[in-house]
Simulated assay, not measured.
Amino acid sequence: MDNNNERIKGVIFDWAGTVIDYGCFAPMHAFLESFDKAGVPITNREAREPMGMLKWDHIQAILQMDRVRGQWIDKYGTEPVKEDIDRLYSDFESTLMESLKAYTDPIPGALETISLLREAGIVIGSTTGYTKGMMDVIVPEARRKGYSPDFMIASDEVKAGRPYPYMIFRNMTELGIFPPASVMKVGDTVSDIYEGKNAGVWTVAIISGSSELGLTQSEVEMMDAGALKARMDETRKSFEKAGADFIINSISQLPAVIKELELSGLARELR
């Protein structure tokens, strides 16, 4: 086998909660507001649970939750249908588009980490639960702040978004990275991990700054050490249950994970 297959050639990052937007807060208030407007308020946890999916699918997933579905039936006397999801999505999208620019700051350590990967000859791809229209707002702002992957694709530019692997396959095609064992998917949600596993690539989940952890940077800095550890342990368990190959506290630990993987020879295993 070509020894070149024993190294990681490409890393495909998620966007919000992974590289930008610490805690992935841009979509949160939009989800909460759209359901409030519909008269069926949802909790932060309910809003976050499907995070990483195409946003229309995300709203559908919320409506399928037992408590939310029950509240909807109590209010409207009928099961939620496609037209209801369409209306909720329209409200969500208009609210989100107004605020996206404000949620494009790089997560601490992200730019430095990506620079190190590029110095090692690794190409940088990306996938997202956002639509192309949303990314048209985000990409120029992120570029201005120092982040621009070698390739990006939005969830509505493929046949189906996460957990399907099609965005990763497009990255691999456009960036010319193969086999799957030489590719790594890095994200902050369970959907990211499922996406990577379905594509047959290595998966890395990040705890700090993640949607799964659901805390702002200031909340993390001010939280009691014991309480923070408990929250991080709970997040780690979610990623373990999803089957992540590696779970790291911070994006800054990613180069060490890649080095460990390459030195172990595991990258040669075409899973």
Rank of each mutant, 00 (worst) to 15 (best):
N5A: 09
V11M: 07
A16N: 10
A16S: 15
A16T: 11
I20P: 00
D21H: 09
C24G: 05
P27Y: 13
H29D: 15
A38H: 07
I42W: 10
A47D: 13
A47K: 12
E49A: 15
M53D: 12
K55H: 01
W56F: 14
W56K: 14
D57F: 03
I59M: 11
Q60E: 15
I62C: 05
L63W: 07
V68K: 14
R69A: 04
W72E: 04
W72G: 03
Y76I: 13
I85G: 09
D86K: 10
R87Q: 10
R87E: 12
L88G: 07
D91T: 14
D91C: 09
S99R: 15
T104G: 01
P106V: 01
P108C: 02
G109M: 04
A110T: 05
T127S: 14
M135H: 02
I138P: 01
I138T: 03
E141N: 11
R144Y: 08
K145M: 05
K145Y: 02
G146V: 03
P149E: 10
F151S: 06
I153Q: 02
S155M: 04
E157F: 00
A160G: 01
I168Y: 07
R170L: 05
E174I: 08
G176E: 08
P179G: 03
P180K: 04
T189F: 04
E195W: 05
E195D: 09
G196V: 08
G200K: 07
W202R: 10
I206Y: 08
S210Q: 08
S211E: 11
L213A: 11
E221N: 09
E221A: 09
M223L: 11
G226D: 03
G226Q: 07
D233H: 01
R236I: 10
D245Q: 04
I248R: 03
N249S: 05
S250A: 03
S250K: 08
Q253L: 04
Q253K: 10
L254F: 03
L254P: 04
L254R: 06
P255G: 05
V257N: 01
I258S: 02
E260T: 12
L261W: 13
L263Y: 03
L266A: 14
R268S: 14
L270P: 00
